[in-house]
């Protein structure tokens, strides 16, 4: 059974003659445990699509259902809860909070979760261990490398064990060696049962995905 269902998603910006269509009616199904790569040239609508899948960018029309939840029928605050419980995000520029240590950055999604300090620390340590950075838990983001920052971002996205991981160009700022390490890490997470949707420009990264969706001019032009 499909875990994520998108039905005729359309996203338009502006009004009247100035209307720009970023996503022009995209439909797809994603099963639980899939590793999906979304590819396309710049401005094709990949990130807009990812934003809509991330419950952050309401479509002009269409429907997104995740785990039988019609995401955009939820109110804004319920969508925030949905993001916290169902989704993990990895951003191209890591977006770590510079004044928080590595482990505190990882714990960030738990800041609004009811759990003891001890439990939160244990969860964050486990996530850091998964990405191999437990020894650098006390460092600040400015004291670690780009690859390590990406690993911290991944640890942050999985700390509350969401079923879906959304990654926007996760290796865009990394060298080849580090890119490979990160992709291996994502593959490992996928093997452990996490559904991953990754936007990428890189054919090398796309090889890690089981299925590639190609987007052009806001339309799905390939799905295999």
């Amino acid at each position: 059974m499909s875990y994520i269902v998108a039905e005729e998603l359309i996203k338009q910006y502006g009004k009247g003659h100035a209307t720009v269509t970023a996503v022009a009616g995209i439909s797809f199904h994603i099963n639980e445990g899939d590793f999906i790569g979304i590819m396309g040239e710049s401005g094709a609508g990949k990130s807009t699509l990812l934003g809509m899948m991330g419950a952050m960018n309401a479509p002009t029309s269409g429907r997104l259902v995740v785990d039988d939840i019609d995401v955009y029928r939820l109110g804004q605050e319920q969508r925030a809860d949905f993001r916290r419980e169902f989704l993990g995000f990895i951003f191209q520029s890591f977006h770590l909070i510079p004044y928080l240590s590595v482990i505190e950055n990882v714990m960030l999604p738990l800041a609004v979760v009811k759990a003891s300090k001890k439990q939160k620390w244990a969860m964050a340590e486990e996530a850091l261990d998964q990405v191999g950075l437990l020894d650098k838990a006390r460092r600040l983001p400015g004291q670690i490398s780009g690859g390590e920052s990406e690993r911290v971002a991944i640890a942050r996205s999985i700390v509350n064990e969401p079923p879906v991981l959304l990654a926007d160009e996760p290796t865009g700022n990394l060298d080849t060696k580090t890119t490979k390490e990160i992709m291996e890490l994502l593959r490992q997470l996928n093997k452990e049962g996490m559904t991953i949707v990754m936007v990428t420009h890189s054919p090398d990264c796309a090889k890690y995905a089981q299925r590639i969706m190609k987007v052009s001019d806001g339309k799905l032009v390939g799905d295999n």
Partner: peptide, 16 residues
């Protein structure tokens, strides 16, 4: 703005 964007993306409510 960036921080708040991250907070909201990872599930902070408005009241948080």
């Amino acid at each position: 703005t960036d921080e708040i964007g991250i907070f909201r993306a990872i599930g902070f409510r408005k009241r948080h």
